[in-house]
Amino acid sequence: MSALLDNSSPVKTNVDQLREKLVASELDSMLITNLRDVRWLTKFSGSNATLLLTRDALWLFTDSRYAEQVKHEVTVAECIITSDGYLAELKTQRYPTGARVGFQADNLTVVSLEKLKAELPTLSLVPQTNFCDEFVAIKALEELENIKRAVSITDKVFQKLLEMMSPNVTECDVAAEISYWNKKFGAEKDSFDPIVASGSRAALPHARATDARLEHNSLVVIDMGCVVNGYCSDQTRTVALGNISSDARRAYNAVLDAHLLGIASAKAGMTGKALDGIVRDFLTAQGYGEAFSHSLGHSVGLQVHEQPIIGKKTEMVIPVGAVITIEPGVYLPNRFGVRIEDMVLITDSGAAPLPAAPKALIEL
């Protein structure tokens, strides 16, 4: 297979975009070591790969475990199977890197960078951060279909959970059911370890499921997702198990209103900081400003957390085609917590929610 690009490939546009950035950054080539970016560019899903992108060629270096796999997954790069690693290949000088070589400084370890400098001392290594993020944020149709399938599975799993939740089951029981039903409905795996927290533990935004039984007359926060063809879903619902206090109900309604405001306010071209601020100001006016302790959301794709982050410091613009989460929360220590999270697609006309699971408070 030639290292020159296959012009019939649907991934060509992604590579062309990176090549334009390569030229604009005054680089002769770029080493791509982030496996998320490797998969986005080439569809290769293995656990060991490095790409060398030049101004007219693309090589993928991997090991013999993937000799057959690359034949089925990769059409846009020449695949080099090596037992000695990509550095050994580059030292042969068969690959014209040019003098100025970029590397992913936000991915390459210090040890790997020092080895790169030692093995290829004549190269001028230029650190790059977030090199692919602006392009990865814009989802192609095939990517959107995979995300929608993952979201659909998450919706189905949530309905299964409602059938089994009671004070007789533990948080770990619920988490195990999430993992089971994800695969039963066709997902590859969970997109992250499920969060299941009831009672006062729901005030921990990233609580780990425990062997504690679900607390009666309390709120239960369930944050879960799955992976389909590499693409993630991420959804949170808070349900009432038994009777809840008027304070808990008020907090739930405030979070729901904030969530809906976030969806209604999301527009292409605004920064993550601006969108976060709209929802944060609303919750502050409701008396919950200090209780909303995390960012409003994040982009989702091949990783469950991608750029742009929808947070207080994010200046990155939200583009048309991005899939982001809107997930406001209120957390009152030693009392209760509430979070509602949906994924939305950013379009020319606003934000289109992807999940179908109900948002009104479910009381079991």
Rank of each mutant, 00 (worst) to 15 (best):
S200W: 05
K12G: 03
L161G: 08
S45H: 12
P167M: 05
S245C: 05
S299N: 13
H216Y: 06
A67Y: 10
A248L: 00
L4G: 14
A118K: 14
P333I: 02
P127I: 00
V300C: 11
M316D: 13
F103D: 14
W40P: 13
L116W: 14
A209L: 04
S179F: 10
D84G: 05
S29Q: 01
T62V: 10
L108C: 10
D211L: 04
H216K: 15
S29C: 00
H305G: 00
A357W: 13
H298F: 04
P194A: 02
S246F: 02
I346K: 06
L53G: 07
L214A: 05
G297M: 06
V300I: 11
L241E: 09
G297Q: 09
P308D: 04
E26S: 15
N130K: 10
A99S: 09
I346D: 04
L345K: 13
A266Y: 03
G289K: 09
V227L: 01
T13L: 02
Q235C: 05
T33C: 01
C232V: 03
I195P: 04
I278Y: 15
A248R: 05
M1K: 14
K156F: 09
L361Q: 06
R149N: 14
R335T: 05
P96Q: 13
L87I: 11
L241R: 06
F336S: 05
R149L: 03
A351Q: 11
N7K: 14
V136K: 12
N243Q: 04
G230P: 14
D281G: 06
M165Q: 09
P10V: 06
D155S: 08
R250G: 10
N168Y: 13
G337D: 03
T154L: 00
E327I: 07
P355I: 01
V23S: 09
L283P: 02
F158Q: 08
R250W: 06
R208S: 11
G301A: 01
K267H: 14
H206K: 11
S112V: 08
E327M: 07
G297V: 04
T284W: 00
A88K: 06
A49K: 02
A118L: 10
V157L: 02
Q303H: 12
E177T: 15
L108H: 15
A105Q: 09
K312S: 07
E26D: 14
K115Y: 10
I324K: 06
G199E: 01
A212W: 04
C172F: 05
P355L: 00
Y252N: 00
L296G: 08
L302S: 10
V101C: 07
D247S: 10
K117Q: 15
L275P: 12
L361T: 03
F192R: 05
L116M: 13
V320D: 05
C172G: 03
R280P: 03
E327A: 14
G272D: 04
K71F: 10
V15P: 15
